[in-house]
Structures are given as C-alpha cells and as structure tokens.
Amino acid sequence: MTESRGQAPRSGLSYLPGEAATDPDGTLTAIGRSWTWILGSAIATLVPGVLVLVWPDETLHVLAVLIGLYLLLTGAFRFVTAFGREHGERVPGLLVAVLFVLAGVLCLRHPMQTVAALSLIVGLTWLVSGILTLYAALAAPDLPHRGVVVGVALLGIVAGIVVLAMPTASARALTRLLGLWLVLLGIGELVFAFAWRAALRRGDALPGAAGPMD
C-alpha cells in the first residue's frame, strides 16, 4: 500500500497483477474497490435511519427487523469491500463484517427484545467497528481522502459511546437516537463514496482502502 496502482477504469473497478491467485476471476476484488459498492453500503445505512425517524412510534418488532436488516446488509457490504484490500490489511474489514452479521442475526432472532437491548447491540457494533476503521485508516498513510475515513470512523465511535451511555432513556428517545445516528453515518459514507469516486477518476485510489467503516 505504498504506491499508486495507476489509472482505474471508468467503472471504478481496478485489478492488480497476481490477484487471481486468491480470486480467480478478480470479481470480488474488483467489486470491493468500486465506489458504487461503497455507495450501496451508505444507502443501506441511510434508508433505515430515515424510516426510523419518520415512523418513531412503530412497534418494537418493526424496529428490530429494520436494525437487523441494516446490520446484515452492512455486514455483507463490509465482507466484499474487505477483499478490496491487500492481504495483510483484510483482517480488520473481515472482523467488522462478521461483527455486523452476528449483530444482525441477534436482532432478527429475538425481535421482541427491548429497545435498550437493541441500543446495546448497535452501540457496541458501532464502537468496535469505528475503532477498527480508525486503526486501519491511521495505518495507511497513503490512503486517499484519509481525513474522510478518519472522520467517519470517529463518528462511529462517538455514536457507539452516546448510544451506550443512554441505556435507561425512554424507548422513544432511544429510537430517535438510533435513527439520527444511522442518518449521520449514512451521510458520512455517502461523502466517502463520492470522494472515492473522485480518487478513482484521478487514478490515485489505493487498494488498501475499500470503505469508511471496514
């Protein structure tokens, strides 16, 4: 991750010599480096947040399903974008992917749990993923738009701390808080997606960074 890989194709997909050794078709690696894949992850975060804010009085079951689907979809995006990294830098991304998927499964398996329990699950997920993302960003000095990635990572850390610090708040307050942070994180990922597209078009996007929350 110390040198540019040259001009990326207009589609935002880039390949590396020798990557077929681990990905015969290069498909996962190429998709993981696509700005549109990052955009999809941002939308998967933003849409549930908007829905929660628009309908804050929906049943706990609906809230749990929305949060669970958000976590599962985000985990899937994180898993693929982890393959946009070089071998030595995939571990943080894969750990975050597993964390999101496990949290999503937990929400969907027990949809009638309390809002406080949902907040605990989501808060821990955001906190740990934010820390891992921050570590990965600081360890990659040549990362394009590293400031944006660091900013989104810090946003995730703050979101996790704030949500975890309010376990006794009213159900309505916690619901609105979860929705608000989902929207903010989604906007942050949207910013990164378009910044990544700009980096790809300039040809300076590096393979070591595939997304702001991985």
Rank of each mutant, 00 (worst) to 15 (best):
A21G: 12
A117K: 04
D57A: 14
A193N: 03
W37I: 06
L46R: 10
L69N: 15
L16V: 09
S119D: 13
I38P: 08
L46P: 02
A193R: 03
L106A: 15
R10F: 05
H110W: 08
G123Y: 03
W37V: 10
A42Q: 05
F77K: 00
I121D: 09
W37L: 05
G26L: 08
V162P: 03
L132R: 01
A169T: 07
T125Q: 03
R176I: 01
L190F: 08
S4F: 05
L164M: 12
G104F: 01
I67R: 05
A195D: 05
L124M: 13
L16Y: 09
G179H: 13
G186P: 00
F100L: 04
V152I: 07
E189P: 06
P56Y: 15
M1E: 09
G186A: 00
I43K: 13
P212Y: 01
D214K: 08
A193T: 03
R176M: 13
G203Y: 04
T27V: 15
L95H: 02
G130M: 05
T59A: 15
W37C: 07
F77A: 00
R201M: 10
P111C: 11
L72F: 05
W181T: 02
A97H: 07
G68R: 00
G156C: 07
A97C: 08
T125P: 04
T27Y: 07
L63D: 11
L118F: 14
G93N: 06
V52Q: 15
V148D: 08
P212I: 05
L177H: 07
T168Q: 12
P207R: 14
G188T: 10
D204N: 14
L206F: 06
A76D: 07
W35S: 15
G188L: 02
L154P: 02
I31F: 00
D214V: 15
L174M: 14
V128K: 00
G40S: 02
Q113H: 13
A117M: 06
P207T: 13
L63F: 10
W126V: 00
L102Y: 01
A44L: 00
A159M: 00
G147Q: 04
G68A: 03
E89K: 14
R201T: 15
P144A: 10
G75D: 04
L180H: 11
R201D: 14
E189D: 14
M166G: 01
D142V: 04
W37S: 10
E3Q: 14
Y70M: 15
I187V: 15
L28Q: 06
V47A: 14
L28F: 11
R78N: 11
G186V: 00
P207F: 10
T29N: 05
A82N: 04
A97D: 09
A205R: 06
V152N: 01
V54T: 12
L28W: 12
T29S: 10
V105G: 02
R201P: 09
L16F: 10
A116C: 06
L71K: 05
P17Q: 10
G93C: 01
G6Q: 08
L95G: 00
P212N: 11
T59W: 14
L102R: 03
S14F: 03
Q7N: 10
D57T: 09
T81H: 00
Y135C: 02
G160R: 00
G123H: 04
A116W: 05
G6W: 02
I157C: 04
